[in-house]
Write a protein that binds this DNA or RNA. Sequence first.
DNA 1: ATTCTGACGTGGG
DNA 2: CCCCACGCCAGAA
Length: 110
Amino acid sequence: METSGNFFEKVYEVAKQIPFGRVTSYGAIAKYLGAAKSARMVGWAMNASHNNPDVPAHRVVNRNGLLTGKFHFDGTNLMQQLLENEGIVVRENQIQNFNQVFWDPFKELV
DNA sequence: ATTCTGACGTGGG
DNA sequence: CCCCACGCCAGAA
């Protein structure tokens, strides 16, 4: 578990705390963990989160609000479907009102 | 051991 | 405003 380091666990912890109908970015989580330059690792951790159903990877997008990882899901629109299911408006893999649905761990998670 | 790629982000031209 | 390049870390070939 901790063989890969606590980094992955930390990412999961934050991702799990993402409230319903809210999303965050890889960079935000990475920055919160103190690895702002390793935003990529957050995405990598999400990849490993496939074994962690408690990690809503679909609520994590890039800083652009774009569903970059939607191709990694089972279906083609599975990620978008999940987000829309939470009330998030998604168009062409891009989250609308991203500013409103954005969840900042620094601001709300303290 | 080396090389490349990757669910990103920021900066420069 | 749009396009390109660099940085960072980790895992796979």
